[in-house]
């Protein structure tokens, strides 16, 4: 396991030392959401209604932003060859990279979300469900994103390609995430709010398998 944590630690260290990491994603998150009222007007009631959906859409886009360097940076300097060749199973390597991506991008976004919720006039009662849902759902974004990032390794304009590949896979996260976040705001028939949080968790757990396995398979092809 020490190999696994060594990789997580190295990637977090690299992300915090070099620009273009999680800080930029949070900035993007902020700016995308701030643009929305310019488009639809500053009506606070309207903003309240669309806040959970907008926050989730912005979260997906922001998480995508840093994915293109996930494997590409390692490919460019030759590290990827050695990671693929190493005794540690490639699936674990992909998982480690996805975890560090989540720690440096997903987690800061979740932490920043309440502030943006405030700007979109999301009631304070809605903050905890929002953060909870994002905490449960955001790992899926990094895990599924890792597959897209692995597929696009060595491709020119890979960043754009990753967005096209990955966004369809983000649809369930968006649906269950928004539904779980809205539970505190609007009356939901039955216990759909709690159910959607469970379903969101299920998506994340499924991604925990799909991400590493799919990512490793894609990387094996990519280096060859």
């Amino acid at each position: 396991m020490s190999a696994f944590w060594a990789l997580v630690q190295r990637d977090v260290r690299l992300a915090t030392r070099v620009g273009g990491g999680g800080g930029m994603a949070v900035f993007f998150f902020l700016i995308v959401l701030s643009i929305v009222p310019f488009g639809i007007g500053p009506d606070l009631n309207l903003l309240t209604r669309i806040a959970p959906g907008m926050l989730w859409v912005a979260l997906l886009l922001s998480a995508l932003l840093t994915l293109d360097r996930l494997f590409q940076a390692d490919q460019e300097d030759g590290t990827l060859d050695l990671l693929v060749m190493a005794p540690q199973p490639l699936e674990l390597t992909v998982l480690a990279k996805a975890i560090s991506h989540w720690l440096t991008t997903g987690l800061p976004l979740v932490v920043a979300a309440p502030l943006l919720g405030l700007m979109l006039n999301l009631p304070l009662d809605g903050m905890l469900p929002l953060m909870g849902a994002m905490l449960v759902g955001s790992p899926a974004l990094s895990l599924l994103g890792a597959v897209g990032a692995a597929l696009a390794v060595g491709v020119r304009r890979g960043g754009l390609l990753i967005s096209l590949l990955v966004l369809p896979f983000y649809v369930p996260v968006l649906i269950f995430g928004v539904s779980a976040s809205r539970a505190a705001l609007v009356a939901v028939p039955g216990d759909l709010g709690g159910q959607s949080l469970l379903l969101l968790g299920a998506v994340s757990l499924a991604s925990l398998v799909v991400g590493p396995v799919g990512g490793a398979a894609a990387l094996r092809v990519a280096v060859k």
């Binding site: 260290r13 070099v18 460019e76 300097d77 030759g78 590290t79 060859d81 050695l82």
Partner: peptide, 23 residues
């Protein structure tokens, strides 16, 4: 191979230290 697999932002020791831990 041709590429050194060296990360510029990390120190020399950190670079080798990662591989030591990884292996």
């Amino acid at each position: 191979g041709h590429l050194d697999a060296v990360k510029s932002p990390l120190s020399v020791i950190e670079n080798l230290g990662f591989w030591a831990q990884f292996y």
